[in-house]
Design a protein around this nucleic acid. Structure first.
Lengths: 170, 170
DNA sequence: ACGGATCGTTTGTGTAGCGCCAACCATTTA
DNA sequence: TAAATGGTTGGCGCTACACAAACGATCCGT
């Protein structure tokens, strides 16, 4: 067996028992657990997990168009509309027509939105403690940082992996 | 605009003290992107993301009962049945009655299952490269390790937050 | 200035994932 | 022997989405 084994000279010896471990499934698993726990603590704030994701994205990059948002969230444009309707109805975000292109809506967090987001994040601490219970605080910070950096990568838009790849490369 | 960035100077030790950033939304976001990309590369193998999650869990802890699995996956018992039906139909897992309690099914990965899992992980490398493109290989290893450790924490079963949670502490 | 593209919006349809309930074996335990 | 438990099946229902069509407002190329 060909083991991946990229030089991992840093942290405590990775177990790498045998094969090709990927983070995908773990990410999925953990995100699910987090989402389940989050729903309950978020409910009293009138938010659902996906709202939080949207708000978080908006805080990080103010002044996006809706299709920009659709791009980063990787959800259909029509669904963005509904999502923003929810948020705007509570005054958490604002849609303004772009001056340069008046077809476009520039979406941004309102003061109330930023406040609500902080409250939500605060409430989320509980859920996070449960789900990430196995990690030390410092490790959680590392995790956060890695996730943040990974998320800011461009949205993989379209043609670039140009498919048709032999993919057996591994 | 109070955009985070409070005093972060003096005292290198305690890192994230600024705002209330939580990993939850990022985890959600990233997992979604990963899942979307994964579906396509997984399809030719006859697997879907959630199968991968199950297989991964099973590899890490062989010999679980189905309700144990339901616990770690945090999905309803009835859905575990269907999930395992899929996997067993392809000979990737095995259900055997437990000797100590013959009501119970002990689920384990077959040789074919382990093989398929490796192939899938191999195929996933493509998706992972796209989604985690912003991270260096070493960082991906760190991420993997953190996710793995976090996932192995017990499933939050029940009473344990018994700390009479102050909750509003934050 | 006209026609075609583009952004946002509404409405409607379809599908997948999943919780939940109820009924039913086989088995274990009281 | 009765009650509880693990697994299984079937059915109901909800939520999150994708996808398509049609429409107003706006931009842009010719």
């Amino acid at each position: 067996m060909f083991r991946a084994v990229r030089k991992l000279a840093h942290m405590a010896a990775v177990p790498v028992e045998e094969s090709e471990h990927r983070s995908g499934p773990l990410l999925d698993h953990l995100a699910r657990r987090m989402r389940l726990r989050s729903e309950s603590v978020l409910a009293p704030l009138g938010l659902r997990p996906r709202h939080l994701v949207a708000l978080t994205v908006l805080r990080d990059s103010e002044g996006m168009s809706q299709q920009g948002l659709a791009g980063t969230l990787q959800i259909d444009g029509t669904n963005v509309v509904g999502l923003l309707n929810d948020l705007e109805a509570e005054g958490l975000v604002e849609r303004r027509r772009s001056p340069e292109d008046r077809r476009r809506h520039v979406v941004s967090l309102t003061g109330a939105g930023a406040k609500r987001l902080r409250e939500a994040e605060c409430a989320l601490a509980v859920a996070e403690d449960e789900v990430l219970g196995a990690l030390e605080p410092a490790e959680r910070d590392t995790l956060y940082e890695l996730l943040r950096r990974a998320s800011s990568g461009r949205p993989v838009s379209c043609v670039e992996a140009t498919g048709d790849e032999p993919d057996a490369a591994c």
